[in-house]
């Protein structure tokens, strides 16, 4: 697939500056969004192959999770910061979509925006102290943060319905009620493509170059004049907004939200999507989300052996395609071409 080779991120050993310059000098606007256009074509054509309405739901879920994964990938793959609590932000978005209309009579779209703003605000406040931590310490801090949110969603039953969750009223846009898997396929596709386009733009912006410099070496980036903590905080806030919007969409789509959406296992699933697909690859996040949404459906015929095989596949992919599916395959293609 030609999309994949367009998506390569410069490998760490290449000099990021010269790569950035060549992209800049080259046909910037058109080239930068080429992958998004190709993805849009694929997304538009995919339903032609769907044998039943069930596939609309499956791929709508793929796009929604891919949206959250793209955001997390900006943080992990480009800025090099781990978050094991990102489902917490999906939870904020999901519960905003549920609580806004139910308790305050707000329209759904406004609740989604409020959720995103709230996520950004919380990410901004929490991010400053948390992002000072490094490596596994950052991992455990974000894990704790996600856990706290999940506990709040489970405990504050008057607001959230407790562990059984609460129902979410339908999203209404300009008098048009968004319902059904087919409609949500297109809505989630547009959201994902917009998220991907913004991500590509961000990566090629000065902030994006600063992010990648931090990924390679925080100290070196600092010496080169990058405001390290400000850049990390910016990416953290952006990625929280991605997760929040994905969470709101999931809540509207399912018509129900439970604390599960913010749980530790969901956070791990998001990280797995990013890492399996390929860190630092936007298309990789789509592939990672597709793999983890489709696999449980594809493996149902194994019944009791499903989890064993799922575990083996994850291990196998990570051992043999250690940079993730998309970057590893892209590298193999490049290698063959010489």
């Amino acid at each position: 697939m030609s999309v994949r080779s367009l998506d390569e991120r410069p490998a760490a050993q290449e000099q990021p500056l010269s790569k950035a310059r060549s992209t800049f000098v080259g046909s910037l606007g058109r080239h930068r969004l080429m992958p998004v256009l190709l993805l849009a074509v694929l997304v538009a054509l995919a339903p032609l192959l769907f044998p039943s309405g069930f596939y609309y739901r499956i791929f709508a879920l793929v796009y929604i999770f891919a949206l959250a994964a793209v955001g997390l990938n900006l943080l992990m793959g480009y800025a090099g910061q781990v978050s094991l609590g990102h489902a917490g932000f999906m939870g904020i978005g999901a519960y905003a979509a549920a609580i806004g209309p139910a308790h305050f009579g707000l329209p759904g779209w406004l609740s989604l925006i409020i959720g995103a703003v709230l996520s950004a605000l919380i990410a901004f406040l929490v991010g400053r102290p948390i992002l000072r931590l490094k490596g596994h310490y950052l991992a455990v801090a974000t894990l704790g943060f996600g856990l706290l949110l999940a506990i709040v969603f489970t405990s504050e039953a008057e607001w959230t319905g407790g562990p059984d969750g609460m129902s979410v009223s339908r999203l209404v846009l300009f008098g048009w009620s968004v319902r059904g898997s087919e409609t949500w396929y297109w809505v989630s596709a547009v959201l994902f493509l917009a998220g991907a386009a913004i991500a590509y733009n961000l990566i090629e912006s000065p902030a994006g170059r600063a992010m990648r410099a931090i990924h390679d070496s925080e100290t070196a980036a600092g010496v080169l004049g990058v405001d390290v903590s400000r850049t990390k905080l910016l990416v953290f806030v952006i990625s929280s907004v991605y997760a929040s919007i994905a969470g709101s969409s999931l809540a509207f789509f399912n018509g129900l939200v439970t604390p599960d959406v913010a749980g530790f296992l969901r956070s791990i699933e998001l990280v797995a999507m990013v890492v399996l697909g390929g860190m630092g690859s936007v298309v990789g996040s789509l592939v990672g989300a597709a793999v983890l949404v489709l696999l449980p459906q594809a493996l149902t015929f194994l019944h009791d052996y499903e989890h064993m095989v799922l575990g083996l596949i994850i291990m196998g992919v990570m051992i043999f395609l250690r940079d993730g599916i998309v970057p590893s395959i892209a590298a193999a293609f490049r290698g063959r071409r010489g």
Partner: peptide, 27 residues
């Protein structure tokens, strides 16, 4: 077999292993 891979990749391998072991135990 995955030596030299980055830390997050190695963590993913152990998560895969934990899913596998849990699945094996239930069988």
């Amino acid at each position: 077999p995955a030596r030299g891979a980055n830390a997050v990749t190695l963590i993913m391998i152990t998560i895969g292993a934990s899913i596998f072991l849990r699945g094996a135990a239930q069988v």
